[in-house]
Nucleic acid binder design. Structure first.
Length: 500
RNA sequence: GGCGACGUGGCCAAGUGGUAAGGCAGGGGCCUGCAAAGCCCUCAUCCCCGGUUCGAAUCCGGGCGUCGCCUCCA
């Protein structure tokens, strides 16, 4: 059985069959660039990053399109508040968005169209809709007439007549129906504007995604994603626009992610209970953030808290430890224990590798069940730790190929989830270790790396002499600088402890 | 009021008909100079009440509770 995807449009899981065999066209609604993105936004982009990575892992050639909405009411509002051009605001936060995505390890889209660079196509779609009598113009504004599109409401399961539209918003009496939405907005003085058959104006938000997706992927593309708060009205409106304009089905599979919550309440910019991604990443590794989020299924709500991030950081260490251990052991095999593993034990680890891989794939095939997939990886981590602890590299390093196989499998599958084993950056050692080395190890140079080497050597010597006080002074001193020292059978190891 | 989702151990969370993955935390043990890491053991009958079935966390009905959408929102 292949990949199954929960399709919001049909409310059930469906076998995934792309439009074109072997390739996938997917579109995910991107940000409106008027502020830094918060971690709720990040969760959605992360979810679809994993979808994209997994589809590629399964051999599909994925065209991944994500727009940048760089002209919008909120951008204009912000620009007015700050007394600078809207284009400047948009440019600033576009860059910030791209930087934030990169720091979370989200792969860049194949194409990232900007609304302001797609204006002619937007005007063209509005014109098509007017010609087909799905849209009408009033005083330079153009509205989509929801009642002219009989399928309106099919994605969100709503009936126009049962919605008490306008009950909480002022009804614009120029609209034929309160639910009619703007395709094109006449520009007010000082706003960004483009020349159109209806006068100077700018595109409506919903229009942008219909146009940019069609331009890059054509009609009836495979996957359209976004968070569940976009189902209505945004995605409903996209369907109406695109299907009315083209007469073809818009999208094959609609995927919607669950919302991030804080204290059981939705995190949103309007509620003000948000945390910016860039701030969270100051304190937590991207991989830990990814692990935290991926331990919950993408469609479920996820309650966010520092406690959960702390837990995720601990479990991140757990899952990458065997990878580090295997590297250390296979790089310095002479120092490792050399117990020969019997065929039975070797086969057991081999079987664990195979079953982890199989389970990972079957969990991910089932609507991208990252939580289940991670479960499989934790099990492989334990099997690897057990083997490593019991046999090491084996006599004549005979266990090395098998251990590498286990470590590589873990690393490869974690990589599909975008979780990487962070290499300790060389620059991580602060200059203060030099002083520490001078005090405790008699080191006289200025190089931080060598200072650390000197400290570890001094500690090893002290331990040989059973001078525990001197040995512990080194460990405690490094500990205060944020590094922990762990003794392994291949000698002491120093790791940066991000908790400090 | 309409539409929808959800309710699994101390916390988080997979599992959607055949007898409860995994992570975090806790308890006991091994290893260690001490630690850390790791390993082993231990820790639930799935919100409540009915029903269907040989058998249900898993299906149906009814409660109770939480959340989301119906307005810009990832």
């Amino acid at each position: 059985m292949g990949i199954r995807i929960y399709n919001t449009a049909t409310r059930r899981k469906e076998e995934f069959e792309p439009r074109d065999e072997g390739s996938v066209s997917m579109y995910v609604c991107g940000p409106t660039v008027y502020n830094h993105i918060h971690i709720g936004n990040a969760r959605t982009f992360l979810s679809f990053d994993v979808v994209r990575r997994y589809l590629e892992y399964r051999g599909f050639d994925v065209s991944f399109v994500q727009n940048i909405t760089d002209v919008d009411d909120k951008i204009i509002k912000r620009a007015n508040e700050e007394g600078r051009p809207a284009t400047e605001v948009a440019a600033e936060y576009t860059t910030a968005f791209q930087d934030a995505m990169a720091s979370l390890g989200v792969a860049p889209p194949t194409v990232a169209p900007k609304a302001t660079e797609t204006i002619p196509e937007m005007i063209s779609m509005v014109r098509r809709l007017i010609e087909r009598e799905y849209a009408y113009e009033v005083d330079g504004d153009v509205y989509f007439s929801v009642r002219s599109f009989s399928d309106y409401g099919k994605l969100s399961g709503r009936d126009i007549d049962e919605m008490n539209a306008g009950s909480r918003v002022d009804v614009d009496d120029r609209k034929r129906d309160p639910l009619d939405f703007a395709l094109w907005k006449a520009a007010k003085p000082g706003e960004p504007h483009w020349t159109s058959p209806w006068g100077e104006g700018r595109p409506g938000w919903h229009l942008e995604c219909s146009v940019m997706s069609e331009k890059e992927l054509g009609v009836t593309f495979d996957i359209h994603g976004g968070a569940s708060d976009l189902i209505f009205p945004h995605h409903e409106n996209e369907i109406a626009q695109s299907e009315a304009a083209t007469g073809e089905p818009f999208v094959r599979y609609w995927m919607h992610g669950g919302l991030l919550q804080v204290n059981k309440e939705k995190m949103s910019k309007s509620l003000g209970n948000f945390m910016l991604l860039k701030d969270v990443l100051k304190d937590y590794d991207a991989s830990a953030v990814r692990l935290m989020m991926l331990q919950t299924h993408y469609r479920s709500p996820l309650d966010f808290s520092d406690d959960r991030l702390d837990e995720a950081r601990t479990s991140y260490e757990r899952i990458i430890t065997p990878i580090r251990e295997v590297r250390a052991a296979t790089e310095q095999p002479a120092l490792r224990r050399d117990v020969q593993a019997g065929a039975e034990d070797r086969n057991e680890l081999l079987a664990a590798i195979e079953s982890a891989r199989e389970r990972f794939i079957s969990e991910m095939d089932d609507d991208f069940n990252t939580a289940g997939a991670l479960g499989a990886l934790f099990e492989l981590a334990r099997a690897t730790n057990r083997f490593l602890g019991e046999f090491g590299v084996g006599e004549g390093e005979s266990n090395v190929p098998l251990l590498r196989q286990a470590g590589n499998a873990l690393e490869e599958l974690l990589g599909v989830l975008g979780i990487t084993v962070a290499e300790r950056p060389r620059s991580a050692y602060p200059q203060t270790v030099v002083a520490l080395a001078r005090d405790l190890a008699g080191y006289e140079g200025e190089d931080v790396e060598r200072a650390v080497d000197a400290l570890l050597a001094a500690r090893a010597a002290a331990r040989t002499e059973k001078n525990w006080a001197a040995a512990d002074a080194v460990r405690d001193g490094l500990g205060e600088l944020g590094f922990s020292v762990e003794d392994t059978s291949s000698g002491a190891r120093i790791i940066y402890d991000s908790r400090i």
